[in-house]
Amino acid sequence: MSAIICTDLCKYYQQGDSVIKGLDHVNLEIAAGSFICLSGPSGSGKTTLLNAIGGLDRLDSGQISINGERVDLLGKAALADLRLHSIGFVFQAYNLIPVLSARENVEFVMQVQGVSATKRRQRSMKILQEVGLEGMEDRRPAQLSGGQQQRVAVARAIVSQPKLVLADEPTANLDSKSMEKLMTHFRELNQVHQVTFMIATHDQRVMNWAERRIYMVDGQVTRDEMQDP
């Protein structure tokens, strides 16, 4: 069964007299439990596609279904609920909440979901340990390096085990060792819990982990191929 179905997605931006094609008639079917990498040059539409699937941005035309639910038809509140309970985001910039500690940032979504304090604490401590931030739980984002902040952002995205993780350049600020560790963790979540991953990246090492690679240029899917990770 397909987890995500994108049909004829179009999103255009007006820039002066010219029109930028964010998404230009994109059609995709993504099965539940897939591990996919989106690649392509800057401005090719990777982030726009992730934003559209995650309900962060409205399309000009086209349809998106996640597990049979039409995302493009949902209202603001329903989209917020979908993101809160089913989708984990890792952004290009770390985008942590500056007044919360690393642990509180990780617990943020779970707290809004209503997870009990004990469970939140257990899960956040475990995930922070897994991303190599043990002992730094109480530090605020300003007290962490760029790589450490990115790992907190990743931990926040996956701690509540969403059905879908949309990651935009998640390894941009990580060294090779941390990248390996993170990708191993992603793969484990994918294989054990059937979490679907869509990762936009320029990093060839990350692409090697994917079972399916989608190349985009000027808002169009130019290549879509399977590979053995």
Partner: peptide, 15 residues
């Protein structure tokens, strides 16, 4: 920007 991130995480504008 921060409010955008919080909304992206699933927090409603009302909150």
């Amino acid at each position: 920007r921060e409010f955008g991130v919080i909304m992206a995480l699933g927090i409603k504008p009302r909150r």
